[in-house]
Nucleic acid binder design. Structure first.
Ligand SMILES: NC(=O)c1ccc[n+]([C@@H]2O[C@H](COP(=O)([O-])OP(=O)(O)OC[C@H]3O[C@@H](n4cnc5c(N)ncnc54)[C@H](O)[C@@H]3O)[C@@H](O)[C@H]2O)c1
Ligand SMILES: NC(=O)c1ccc[n+]([C@@H]2O[C@H](COP(=O)([O-])OP(=O)(O)OC[C@H]3O[C@@H](n4cnc5c(N)ncnc54)[C@H](O)[C@@H]3O)[C@@H](O)[C@H]2O)c1
Lengths: 217, 217
DNA sequence: TTACAATAAAGAAAATTTTCTTTAAATAAT
DNA sequence: ATTATTTAAAGAAAATTTTCTTTATTGTAA
């Protein structure tokens, strides 16, 4: 591997920073559309409700330098962010469980801007096998083992029911998958070198409901 | 309002704790099924990869006390968590934008366990209006203003395209919505008393891709 | 040029969250 | 009963993240 990067990026970025970066990227793409060539950290902070020094620190991880009195070069910053996040590469993925959520993810066109490319989806439901959603074919689950041999896919998107999540995850790992984007509520246990990214919507529900409840006291 | 709570809960719980609580709840429901009447913090921690003292501190926000040598009462803990998170109430919501993601959320049955009840969905697409997904009717967007007058719905789920998110959010606020669960990438600006819960999937993509990239260096 | 204002960068401080330590309580075994 | 062991609770320490300060740089305008 050992890819060359255009900017001197931070080797390790804090997770809260990482989570904010796509927000900057989305905002910057909008202002670029409006023809803004340079933008300052305080301006970004005002729009996104963030402390200006926080913005400076966050953007520093990309290695891009801003100029005092001018700000950052919009175009340069966008590219550095995409580069840093890996959004400008093609990150190939398999999806398992083409149900409600799986279908939505397959149909989601903006994945391209994340550099995410779902090559194929797999399901056990006969009714779904053979269908195409968002240009992605739904294949028989067993085909996963054949296909993964030929392709070198590193990312698995897990949108099966909770109770099969563990076994499907293990299958994915046996197929050479290195990172699993887990949308199920199940806690999946895998060898520690496998990256498991849990994306629990109920966490957000918890925060929302609690804040709503706190507010109405 | 002023509901009585069975346990002396912490008035303010840290957000990381709040986000972990649904995970405990899901796990506890599983072990309850298996007939486990009591469970200790170290056991929970081992299963969920969390520090045992972290578990104790997290669960302490619910006000439930565990007994040394025995652990927590599974049943009591589940109920305290549901109570604390507001999952055992009926939290009524409107959904706007019955597209890919909106449809998935409408079809999602587990929302019940979060106490979330989507009363109706609204869309501008003629083709979608009149349809029913997961027992939820898709109504003409303008009906939102009529319906909200009669019902006292506090939560709005926002799954429209990004470019209309701001205006739809403002409409929701004008209809009396107090909290918005925002699934779009757009940053929406509303009066500060309105709770906006952003749920950005690209944040997770960012963390996943970066971790994957870091790993392969 | 020269002073002035805006801003990024770097470092310090504060706040928050997690982990570690100690203490006390409750059960089980002797 | 008594002792030993497990465990929750409470507090202290460490780590992390955010916010605040200071400094230095750059461009603008007098
Ligand atoms: N629908 C939502 O909006 C939503 C929201 C948050 C989380 N989730 C989570 O996402 C997961 C999927 O939810 P859903 O609503 O899409 O469920 P779903 O039932 O619609 O979809 C699950 C799909 O997985 C397939 N499947 C079942 N067993 C399989 C196996 N062994 N191998 C491969 N495929 C298999 C099913 O045929 C089905 O198509 C669940 O864990 C759920 O908790 C869903
Ligand atoms: N699909 C996914 O998996 C996914 C994942 C992450 C985030 N998102 C975000 O969720 C949002 C929706 O994505 P999607 O894929 O479901 O898009 P979509 O186009 O399938 O759905 C959007 C729906 O909103 C409706 N709509 C448009 N304008 C409206 C208005 N003014 N009022 C009411 N309804 C209106 C459309 O008719 C459509 O039915 C986007 O912001 C997207 O970024 C989607």
């Amino acid at each position: 591997m050992n890819e060359k990067r255009k900017y001197k990026t931070k080797s390790h970025a804090p997770e809260p920073t990482l989570k904010r970066l796509p927000g900057y990227l989305y905002f910057l793409e909008q202002v670029k559309e409006e023809g803004v060539l340079n933008i300052s950290a305080p301006t970004i902070g005002k729009e996104l409700d963030l402390d200006p020094t926080q913005v400076v620190k966050d953007l520093a991880v990309t290695g891009v330098k801003g100029k005092p009195r001018v700000g950052y070069n919009t175009y340069e910053l966008i590219h550095a962010l995409e580069d840093f996040l890996g959004f400008n590469k093609v990150n190939e993925a398999f999806l398992v469980g083409a149900g409600n959520l799986g279908s939505a993810l397959m149909a989601y066109q903006e994945h391209q801007s994340l550099g995410l490319k779902i090559l194929a989806a797999f399901d056990v439901d006969e009714a779904k096998i053979g269908q195409t959603i968002g240009g992605i074919h739904i294949l028989e689950y067993n085909k996963l083992f054949h296909l993964s041999g030929r392709l070198n896919v590193k990312i698995g998107i897990l949108t099966t029911p909770n109770h099969v999540a563990q076994e499907v995850a293990e299958d994915l790992v046996n197929c050479g998958i290195k990172a699993i984007w887990n949308f199920t509520s199940a806690k999946i246990n895998l060898p520690k070198e496998i990256i498991v990214q849990n994306t629990s919507m109920s966490s957000y529900a918890a925060v929302l409901l609690r804040r709503l409840n706190d507010a109405s006291l």
